[in-house]
Design a protein around this nucleic acid. Sequence first.
DNA 1: CTGTGTGCAAAACGTTTGCATGCCT
DNA 2: AGGCATGCAAACGTTTTGCACACAG
Lengths: 138, 138
Amino acid sequence: MESIEKLTNILRSNGMKITPQRLMIFKVLKNNTSHPSAEEIFRRVKRTYPTVSFTTIYKTLETLRDLGEIKELIIDKDRKHYDPNTDSHHHVICSTCKKIGDILDDYSPSIKLPDSIKNKYTVSGFQISFYGVCNDCR
Amino acid sequence: MESIEKLTNILRSNGMKITPQRLMIFKVLKNNTSHPSAEEIFRRVKRTYPTVSFTTIYKTLETLRDLGEIKELIIDKDRKHYDPNTDSHHHVICSTCKKIGDILDDYSPSIKLPDSIKNKYTVSGFQISFYGVCNDCR
DNA sequence: CTGTGTGCAAAACGTTTGCATGCCT
DNA sequence: AGGCATGCAAACGTTTTGCACACAG
């Protein structure tokens, strides 16, 4: 995700508007490595804007996702999580507390798709999900 | 997933019962490489047992998952998919039609976890999800 | 002033649960 | 006969939508 100033420019140049709620969502996400769910973002924004709605959270997350500024993580079977780090990387999730950690290693040199798949899909990327239990939970 | 006869024995030796609905769910899953969702399984069982309920589908899938006979795939953001192939393998999903393909290559020799993660999580396995578009959709 | 964003309430969606009845063993 | 499985309806948690009002540009 870009800096808040750049992000502001990107939105404005797309005819979108900068509201205090959106700015707070950006601040909550920026440099956030905790992979928050919509609800966690909602709770944090609510501390400053007690009347903020889930609608605003979801709509803004959708906007940021469509702009490629954040990534939606499909790793927790119960809910989506959001990641402002859009560089290719991977994740570990604790099956007990659902805490998600980053794995920044680049595995792409060793991940080659078999031809049988290349003939059927045009693959744009991959995501490795490691499953386990974190130290706090075991 | 085991053969239907073995599966039958496993369930019975766990005090569980074999019903026609369950047998049909087993048949739908056995050797199925299409990674069906609960709804797809429901529709196929319904052809033979028109009064079958989602409850039965979900309960049976939960049972099979808890017995380790099938794997729940977290790869499609909209719904869970089920895989009777419990051998470690990976998947491609078409972001348009959600068709899921198998990737049977063993990448485990090249996937080593960084120590920083090993110190925080006890990892039991990993899953690679490839994202792209299938030939039918492009 | 125009139109995008907000917030409420309600709907939608996949999934789970309580409970009475059914049926496997 | 006993107990697990079924199926209905209702509940659930997450996410989406319709709409009137607010406010950024």
